[in-house]
């Protein structure tokens, strides 16, 4: 599991005067579900396209599955890689199954896989309909089925849940987890941070072409040392002033309260002492909610 599926070494990409990617070093281990996040224009797509070998870096080197994505071995690498571009639109006049067979032939994959893949993404009933009649969500499913052709060892998913409803997003990530269980390495980009934070093993934050941070969500939270927030639901007649005094003594900050709730934040290093103070409040508190900083908070911390 320790072999690198993707190695990006000191990669830079210039478009005329614009430096889209600036000295990025990145390694994705085999079997990982890796997230790439960044705002529009941060260089995500350029990095994706370089990793796929669609464009060459201006400087640096990229190896995918142990091989260069350019040069003689490029066909070999591409047969082992699946790619779902953002917002892909297929050919309106071809049916779902014809579209899939076309890409299977292009990829040199087994065409008998196609029906099974359509079933896997829930499009079996629409297989014979022209793609022009598909909804956006159906096209995205077809794109996902396409990415799975040839049983790839590595999947690139660019904003894969755009246009999907919540139920479909849930199903999609379930399928992604199943693939990961099969040993497939997956790298996905998303701007919906809350969506990927529960799901990725590690992630990288890109800003203006530079890599700001790499690690698990947990590691990034620790590194940023962002405060946690807590909410206490107070019992009727709870002595608010006493409670506030005890919590501030334990390290709580930025307290806000009304009759039924007390909101505050605390630094990570005071988390345990504050929780001990909360526990000591006993029946004056009905419930307590602890919220870890979200990926949004971490992301904003890095890109601010």
């Amino acid at each position: 599991m320790n072999a690198s599926a993707i190695e990006v070494c000191a990669v830079t990409k210039d478009f005329a005067a614009l430096r889209a990617v600036d000295g990025v070093d990145l390694a994705v281990d085999a079997g990982e579900l890796f997230g790439l996040i960044g705002h529009n224009g941060a260089g995500k797509s350029t990095l994706f396209r370089m990793m796929l070998g669609l464009i060459a870096p201006s400087a640096g080197e990229i190896r995918v599955l142990g091989q260069s994505v350019h040069g003689d071995g490029f066909r070999d690498v591409r047969r082992k890689v699946g790619y779902l571009p953002e917002n892909v639109v297929f050919y309106d006049n071809l049916t779902g199954i014809e579209t899939l067979r076309f890409f299977a032939r292009m990829k040199g994959a087994d065409e008998t896989e196609c029906s099974g893949l359509l079933e896997r993404v829930g499009l079996a009933a629409a297989a014979g309909r022209p793609v022009g009649q598909y909804s956006k969500g159906m096209r995205q499913r077809l794109g996902f089925a396409q990415a799975l052709l040839g049983k790839p060892a590595l999947l690139f998913l660019d904003e894969p849940t755009t246009g999907l409803d919540p139920e479909a997003i849930h199903e999609f990530y379930q399928a992604v987890q199943n693939l990961r269980a099969e040993g497939v390495t997956i790298i996905l980009s998303s701007h919906i941070l809350s969506e990927i934070q529960e799901r990725v093993s590690r992630l990288a934050i890109l800003r203006s072409g530079r890599l700001q941070a790499t690690g698990s969500v947990h590691e990034l939270r620790e590194k940023m040392d962002l405060p946690l927030s807590m909410v206490l639901l107070l019992a009727e007649g709870a002595p608010l002033a006493d409670i506030q005094r005890d919590l501030v003594a334990a390290g709580a900050e930025a307290l806000q309260s009304d009759d039924t709730e007390l909101k505050f934040s605390c630094a990570r290093k005071s988390k345990m002492s504050v929780l001990a103070a909360v526990a000591a409040l006993r029946e004056t508190v009905r419930d307590v909610h602890v919220r870890e900083p979200s990926l949004e908070d971490v992301y904003l911390g890095y890109t601010a």
């Binding site: 796929l52 066909r75 591409r78 790619y83 571009p85 892909v88 639109v89 990829k107 396409q146």
Partner: peptide, 13 residues
């Protein structure tokens, strides 16, 4: 414009 060019180019071609 359709967004399918990158997909075609990611094939072994």
């Amino acid at each position: 414009e359709r967004g399918s060019l990158d997909l075609l180019l990611s094939m072994p071609i």
